[in-house]
């Protein structure tokens, strides 16, 4: 198994506050990994660091996309990171609300296409072809994520569950090797969560994408993930398979507090 994401000794300070404290983490090809932890443990900060939104204070972030060389991505801008093949979704949905569903996904194709201003004005053969490819590709992703009936709706008019799906679809349009999902099931009802479970598994199996997700829904985490990382106060306090984690006293302590008898 190849490691595709390797995070070594990552720290992030906000002024005097240490949000991430010497964190080590890795993701191997084809797995679904989950990060769990109480609120404020630094999970989203971790995502922001590895996607280039924050520049980490210390440590190294290395990626090795399948078939390519290992590369350090510290300090790269978010758009460069996405182009390298790591795409993310956001905890508080950040869609382009006044664009249609299809256009939202088409934005994801931006970094894989190249036509510029002159091409757009002259609308030559290559631009028309590229545009058509983008539309077809995006529509296929919408079909795969099960929201193709909403193509021409404005993103802001979508029901909540569909918005979450659209975020995933948009990230998938960038053809990532690693998909980072920030609380994909937040606010979903049990049925929507089940459908999400199925969608994520299908993306992994059919599109050869590995998944790293932050999630609070334990049922989803336990059923989906191959490995789980547990964070608390910016540190990784445990890692392992779901069954390891569920019985780990350190994890139980972090979630439920100190045991009275101990």
């Amino acid at each position: 198994m190849n490691t595709i994401l390797e995070v070594k000794d990552l720290s992030m300070d906000f002024g005097g506050l240490r949000a991430l404290d010497h964190l080590d983490l890795n993701v191997v090809e084809g797995e679904i990994a989950a990060i769990i932890g109480p609120n404020g443990a630094g999970k989203t900060t971790f995502f922001n660091c590895i996607t280039g939104i924050y520049n980490p204070t210390e440590g190294e972030i290395l990626i090795s996309p399948p078939g390519k060389k290992r590369k350090k991505i510290n300090g790269l801008k978010p758009n460069r990171v996405t182009k390298k093949g790591m795409a993310r979704t956001f905890q508080n949905i950040r869609l382009f609300s006044n664009m249609t569903v299809l256009e939202n996904v088409m934005i994801g194709r931006h970094c894989r296409t190249s036509s510029g201003i002159v091409g757009a004005i002259l609308r030559g053969r290559s631009t028309i072809k590229e545009e058509k490819d983008v539309v077809d590709f995006s529509y296929n992703i919408l079909k795969k994520t099960g929201i193709s009936h909403l193509v021409n709706e404005f993103a802001k008019n979508l029901p909540y569950g569909a918005q979450r799906r659209l975020e995933i679809a948009r990230a998938m349009a960038t053809e990532p090797f690693l998909l980072l999902l920030d609380e994909p099931a937040a606010g979903m009802n049990p049925r929507e969560t089940r459908e999400l479970d199925e969608l994520i598994t299908r993306l992994r199996d059919e599109d050869n994408v590995s998944i790293l997700m932050i999630e609070h829904d334990m049922k989803l985490v336990m059923s989906l993930s191959d490995r789980i990382f547990v964070m608390d106060y910016g540190r990784k306090i445990a890692q392992g398979t779901p069954s390891d984690i569920i019985n780990n006293p350190v994890v139980i302590k972090a979630y439920l507090g100190e045991d009275i008898d101990a």
């Binding site: 801008k77 978010p78 758009n79 950040r94 869609l95 382009f96 931006h110 970094c111």
Partner: peptide, 14 residues
């Protein structure tokens, strides 16, 4: 225009 952070995270050079 809609969301600068998301736009950049989707691979667009701001």
């Amino acid at each position: 225009r809609e969301d600068e952070t998301a736009c950049q995270a989707m691979g667009i050079d701001k």
